[in-house]
Amino acid sequence: MTGVAVVPDRLAAAGPAARDRLAETGAVVLTGLPPHPDSLAQVAAALLGSTLRELYPHRTRRSLDGGVIDLHADSFDIVVDIGGTPVRRRHPDEDYVLVQLVTPAPSGGDSFVLDAHAFTDALPTNLRTFLAGTDVDLYGRWAGIRGLPATPRVGRHIEYTRTGRRITRRADGALPLHRDPDEEYVASMLARFDEEVGRAQSVLPRFRLYSGDVLVLDNYRCWHGRDPHTGERVTHIQTLRTDQAG
């Protein structure tokens, strides 16, 4: 997996070095932080500064004897009604994600990261063409989840923002568009894409997070996941958008 695997540097504090390394590789691990959700907002402000546009509510994930979490980019489309006012709690084009380990699992739970731009650029030509040229329903498998809009979210796995920033998406919710005349072809290419991602995931180097560590990811460029674990594992997760998003 030369050229596509990412093992993030471990740095002691958010500052110029962390910012530069994040820009170079798309991922960094910040150490020595209190295992508290406030650390996520502090890291976001220190790394991204005045480019921050919107922080979405942090979420705490607890898993007991958890299975593998496959390679993915964080994104979701949730708008809720609070007192009669629509409030966005997640966004399909979140461009950074911060994951803080609070409670390490007694065994397992190591992390892995992939440079999705480099990975998809190395795929066979017809699969690359599909990812960049075919619209899919990005959250079709998740239809019916409360808060998820009923209108399909149509997009491509590889797209560009209006300022030219590349987005390489990866989620387990993608389906062919409703009544797409090429449905069979689209479904077969999505399955082939899953197979390619699975092969890459199996050989990626693993790295371990410790309590308080924050894994910071360029969510447009890097996919991440973790291995199965025994016992309890707790993380805080926060996604956000900068002025370069969307």
Score class of each variant (00 low, 15 high):
V4F: 12
V4D: 12
V6M: 03
V6E: 01
V7Y: 05
P8Y: 05
P8N: 00
L11D: 03
A12W: 02
A13T: 14
G15I: 08
P16R: 01
P16G: 05
A17L: 13
A18W: 02
R19Q: 12
R19V: 10
R21N: 07
E24P: 08
E24Y: 07
V28S: 02
T31Q: 11
G32M: 01
P35E: 09
D38Y: 10
A41K: 13
A44Y: 07
L48A: 07
T51D: 10
T51M: 09
L52N: 11
E54P: 09
E54G: 11
L55V: 09
Y56V: 08
P57H: 00
T60W: 01
R61F: 12
R61S: 11
R62S: 08
G67D: 12
I69K: 15
L71N: 09
H72T: 02
D74G: 02
S75D: 12
F76K: 07
I78V: 08
I78C: 08
V79W: 05
V79K: 08
D81F: 04
I82G: 12
R89S: 10
D93H: 11
D95A: 07
V99W: 14
P104L: 00
A105G: 03
A105V: 00
P106S: 01
P106C: 02
S107L: 13
G108E: 12
G109D: 03
D110C: 11
A116K: 06
A118R: 07
T120Q: 14
D121I: 09
N126S: 15
L131Q: 03
G133N: 09
T134V: 11
T134E: 15
D135H: 10
V136R: 07
Y139N: 05
A143N: 13
G144P: 04
G144F: 06
L148Q: 15
A150Q: 13
A150R: 12
P152L: 13
V154I: 15
G155E: 04
R156I: 04
H157P: 02
H157C: 07
I158P: 13
E159Y: 08
Y160A: 13
T163K: 13
R166N: 02
R166W: 09
I167D: 11
D172N: 15
P176L: 06
P176D: 10
L177G: 04
H178Y: 15
D180E: 04
Y185V: 13
V186L: 05
A187V: 08
S188T: 14
M189H: 11
L190R: 09
A191D: 15
A191T: 12
D194W: 08
V197Y: 14
G198Y: 10
L204R: 09
Y210N: 13
S211V: 00
D213M: 01
V214K: 00
L215Y: 00
L215Q: 02
V216M: 03
V216R: 02
V216C: 11
D218W: 06
N219W: 01
Y220K: 06
R221N: 01
R221V: 00
C222D: 01
H224W: 01
R226C: 03
R226F: 06
R226V: 02
E232M: 09
V234N: 00
I237W: 01
I237L: 05
Q238H: 03
Q238T: 11
D243K: 09
D243E: 09
